[in-house]
Amino acid sequence: MSGGVIPLGLLDLSIAATLVIILAILTWRLQLGMSRSVLIAGLRTVVQLLLLGLLLEYLFASSHPLLIGFLALVMLVVAGREVMARQQRPFSGTWGYGLGTLSMFISSFTITIFALNIIISPQPWYLPQYAIPLLGMMLGNTMTGVALTLDNLTRSAWQQRDIIEQRLMLGQDWRTAICDVSRDSLRTGLIPIINSMAAAGIISIPGMMTGQILGGSSPWDAAKYQILIMFMITAGTGFAAVLASWLGTRRLFDERQRLRLDRLAPKRTD
């Protein structure tokens, strides 16, 4: 990388942190009840990103495939937890965690491995400088798509349970009885990524492109990488959301095509 980056010191970060603290004070004065969340989230950002930075420094130096695989697994596990936490009524038991995690795993890992081997082809293909940031971006976006889809699916199924059951009573099969709900949930999951594709470059300069330009890459190369990433993310999010919606919808019914809302965990109160 030519040009290099202007390194940031502790003082620079402290100045930026002050802005977040001012925001927290403002939300407290407005009685939004969010100042705690703002501060905790801010603190998490600092701790998590610094840890990640340290970890990646070490990982890039060693490049051991097992270590990379382990980190990928940790990322998946955390993303899976996040998907579950973002649902008001997740499925109870292992399904609650497993459904979103499995969908994300199949979709993000397949597409990341595909892109690394067929498109980017670093040597070796699991070179952590490429593999880890790619997978991170995939998981981050897939997570949002899956969480939105599942949250919407289970919440709408709950709200519209009387309609779904009425349709079953009239002799519709389970797929037809819930089709409006599952279609809407999938749409909800896909809207953010479609919007961000449409807005890319005009309304926003995407995060990765910004990073590459700040890091000294030519904007032209950065644009091409961003396009690749956008497509991967869109496909990954889309496939994961479809899979999650399909598995989730199935799980809402039993083998006798009864709506089984007792398979959902009780509503979260926060």
Binding site: D162, I163, E165, Q166, R167, L168, M169, L170, G171, Q172, D173, R256, Q257, R258
Partner: peptide
Amino acid sequence: PPLWRRQVGLLPAETEW
């Protein structure tokens, strides 16, 4: 199940549309 439910017409206390 769909066939069975069409044959035993269940009318709930409140119908849904």
